[in-house]
Simulated scan of single mutants.
Amino acid sequence: MMKTQRYSPSTERSKITYALWGLGIIAFIAVLFFSGMYIQIMGEKTDTYNQSEQQALNQTELSSVHHVSRYHGPIRYDIVAGVTKEGKKGYAFIPKDTEQANISYVALSDVLTEDSMKQQWQSTCNACELIDIIPAHDGSIPLWEVTFTDSNERYAIQTFNMKSGSKVDTFYFRR
């Protein structure tokens, strides 16, 4: 014969216990969902890098690739940094938002280097704090994009022509 426990308020599970279990399960599902979403988004961010690397090796003077990055301007570009067979460094700019990929290539010996751009920029902006300098592209113009904070504590982005060093555009953002 099976014994059953008599009903007693002290033996009944409280509603708080059920609510905590429910919240725990919902939180666990939310963490799984957002983790999966994050992994998918980060994967999509770099999913064109291998294709861009192959295009740069096949359609430009580059014979080896050191780094691939992304530039988001009016047109999204994958920027492939590498070296030619002669040992000259260069950048291949591969557009990703258009069907016809007009790949442009710039040898680093034909443009201002990152260090030269940094020195030129520092001479014009004394009270600024440099955040980053990255290669960029706008239409048919290779650019350097300089990100910094200015003396007014504004976040700023300036673009400079890679060949001449002339300023192309400036954007300021309040913090």
Rank of each mutant, 00 (worst) to 15 (best):
E86R: 13
I79N: 01
L57M: 02
Y77V: 07
S64G: 05
N58I: 07
K88S: 09
V80L: 06
Q55H: 10
Q54M: 06
P74N: 14
K89V: 11
R70S: 14
R76H: 12
P74R: 06
P74K: 08
S64K: 13
G73I: 11
Q59I: 14
Q54T: 12
H66A: 11
G82V: 06
A81E: 10
N58Q: 12
K85E: 07
Q51T: 14
I75R: 04
A81S: 13
H67Q: 12
Y77E: 01
N50R: 04
T84D: 00
T84E: 02
A56Q: 05
D47W: 00
E61V: 06
K89P: 10
L57Q: 03
G87V: 02
S63F: 07
S52I: 07
H67W: 08
Y49E: 06
E53F: 01
V68W: 01
G73A: 06
D47E: 14
P74W: 05
P74Y: 08
H72P: 07
T48V: 12
V80M: 04
S69L: 11
H72T: 15
Q59V: 14
H67F: 11
N50V: 14
V65G: 03
Y71W: 10
A56G: 10
S63E: 15
E61C: 03
P74V: 14
Q51E: 13
P74A: 10
T60F: 01
L57H: 01
Q55D: 08
A81F: 09
H66L: 13
E61Y: 04
D78Q: 07
G73M: 03
R76L: 12
